[in-house]
Amino acid sequence: MGNYGGLISLVLMFVLFYFLLIRPQQKRQRQVQTMQGGLKKGDKIVTIGGLHGIIDSIDDNKVVIRAGDGSRLTYDRAAVREVTESAPE
């Protein structure tokens, strides 16, 4: 039984590590990919740099954001952190 004790504790540590660190990170990554895939013109967003704006146009990899003073800035689609308000359908 002494030989199996070390093996059991190693497996238990791996399972604990998976459920506390790996699985939540994968879930968050799927949510971000879904959010970035569903972006559309008119959505109010926040970028990873903290810029608040409205999506003016969008293509496969880039998003043009209209900032507060009317300026238009181009960002990668992956730079969008969250959608604060979705555009009306």
Rank of each mutant, 00 (worst) to 15 (best):
G49T: 08
S57I: 01
E82T: 13
S9R: 15
N61R: 08
G68N: 09
M35C: 06
E89G: 12
K62E: 07
F17W: 08
T84G: 07
S86V: 07
D56Q: 11
V80K: 00
I45M: 01
Q31Y: 06
A79T: 09
G50W: 03
M35Y: 05
Q33S: 15
G70A: 06
R77A: 02
R28G: 12
R28A: 15
V83R: 04
F17I: 11
I55V: 11
M1N: 09
D56P: 03
V64R: 14
G68C: 03
Q33F: 12
L39S: 06
L7W: 06
K62T: 07
Q36E: 07
K44C: 12
M1Q: 10
Q31I: 05
A67D: 11
E85H: 10
R72S: 11
L20D: 07
D60I: 01
D60W: 00
V80H: 00
R30F: 12
G49S: 11
G37I: 01
G6H: 05
I55L: 09
L7H: 12
K62W: 03
A87P: 04
A87K: 06
H52D: 15
F19V: 11
L51G: 04
G49D: 11
Y75C: 06
G2E: 11
L21K: 11
E85W: 01
G5L: 02
H52P: 00
G50R: 06
N3L: 13
P24D: 10
G6E: 05
F14H: 13
K27E: 15
Q31D: 13
R23N: 10
T74E: 13
D56L: 03
R30H: 14
K41R: 10
Q26C: 07
L12I: 04
G42I: 00
I54G: 02
Y4C: 07
I48S: 13
